[in-house]
Nucleic acid binder design. Structure first.
Lengths: 152, 152
DNA sequence: CTGGGACCTCAAGCGGACTTGAGGTCAAGG
DNA sequence: CCTTGACCTCAAGTCCGCTTGAGGTCCCAG
C-alpha cells in the first residue's frame, strides 16, 4: 500500500486513461508537475487527475497542448482551476465549439443539397469549390477553418 | 498556348488551390494520375479538377487520404464519380458528419451545464470524465471519435 | 538557337503528440 | 538480502500530409 495519498505514475496513467509515457511527456511540456522520491521516482498528488481532466477537456475542444499550457498559465500560480477560472475558460471554449459546429452543419447542409442535385461535376458544390472559383479566391477556398480541416 | 485541353501541373495546382508538390504527392499516393510528355512532364485532363474536388470534399468530411483512395477505388475503373456514385458516397459522409456534429453538440451542452454548475472538480464533467470512471471504461473514455479527437 | 521559367526526381524535413527501445535504477514483499 | 516489477533518462521513431532543397531537364517564345 502507498503510505500517504501520493500516486505513482502507473496508477495515474491507468486512472487518467493515458500511457505513462504521455505523463512524462506532459511534464516535459510543462502541463503537469510531480514530486520525486529520494530515488527520483515520480509521485503525484491526487489533484493531478483534475489537471489531466482539464487537459483532456481542452484537447477535446480542439486546443493544442501549447494552448492548454497557455490556458493553464492564466491561472495564477498554476493552480488547479477554480469555478471562476473554469467558467472563464469554458466560455472561450464554448465559442470555439459553436464555431466548429457551425462549420460542420454548413458542410452537412451543403452535402444534402448536393445529394438532391446530383451534383455531377462537383464544381460549385458546397462541399468543395476548388475549380476556377477557388483559384480566383486565392489559395483555395475551403469550408472549414484550418483547425478543422485536417482531422475534422 | 497549350494545344489540346491538357493542363500542366502549375495550372492545375492554381485552379485546385493546391501546391504542385501536393499534386505530385497525390499521384504518388494513387489518388490521381497524369499522362506524361515525351520529356516526362505531367499533363492532366480537365477531369482531374473534379477528382481533386472529390478528394478535398472527402477530406473535409474527415477522411484520410487512404480512405479517399479506398472510396475512389469503389468506383469501377477508378473513373470520376457519377451522380449515383456521388450520392452513395455522400450518404456515408452525411452519416459521418452527423456523428461528428452530435459529438460536438454533446460536448457543448456538457460544457454549458458545467458553466452552470461550477463543476469545480471536473470529475463527472461532461467534458472529461477521465478519473476512475474512465479508468474502468478501458483506455479512457473520450467524447469525440478518433477522427475528431486529434485536431478537431 | 537560346534564355529562362516551369518542370522533373529523390531524399529529407516539419509539426504535433506521443511511443518505443536501450540500458540502467528503485522499492517493497518474502 | 534478494528478487522482480515498476520506474528512470535520453534519443530516436511513428504517423499524416505535405513542403523544401539540391541538382538537373524540358519546352517554347523571341
Amino acid at each position: 500500500m502507498r503510505p500517504d495519498d501520493l500516486l505513482q505514475i502507473g496508477e495515474v496513467a491507468r486512472r487518467a486513461g493515458l500511457a505513462p509515457s504521455a505523463l512524462r511527456y506532459y511534464e516535459q511540456q510543462g502541463l503537469v508537475t510531480s514530486v520525486r522520491t529520494a530515488g527520483g521516482v515520480r509521485r503525484y498528488p491526487r489533484s493531478v487527475l483534475r489537471r489531466l481532466a482539464f487537459v483532456r477537456a481542452a484537447q477535446n475542444v480542439g486546443l493544442s497542448l501549447q494552448e492548454v499550457r497557455a490556458a493553464l498559465s492564466t491561472l495564477p500560480d498554476a493552480r488547479t482551476p477554480t469555478p471562476a477560472d473554469w467558467a472563464r475558460l469554458s466560455r472561450t471554449w464554448r465559442a470555439r465549439l459553436d464555431e466548429q459546429i457551425d462549420s460542420l452543419v454548413a458542410l452537412r447542409d451543403g452535402l444534402s443539397s448536393c445529394i438532391g442535385c446530383g451534383c455531377l461535376s462537383l464544381r460549385r458544390c458546397a462541399l468543395s469549390n476548388p475549380d476556377d472559383a477557388a483559384g480566383a479566391a486565392g489559395s483555395g477556398a475551403r469550408y472549414l477553418p484550418p483547425s478543422l480541416r485536417r482531422a475534422l
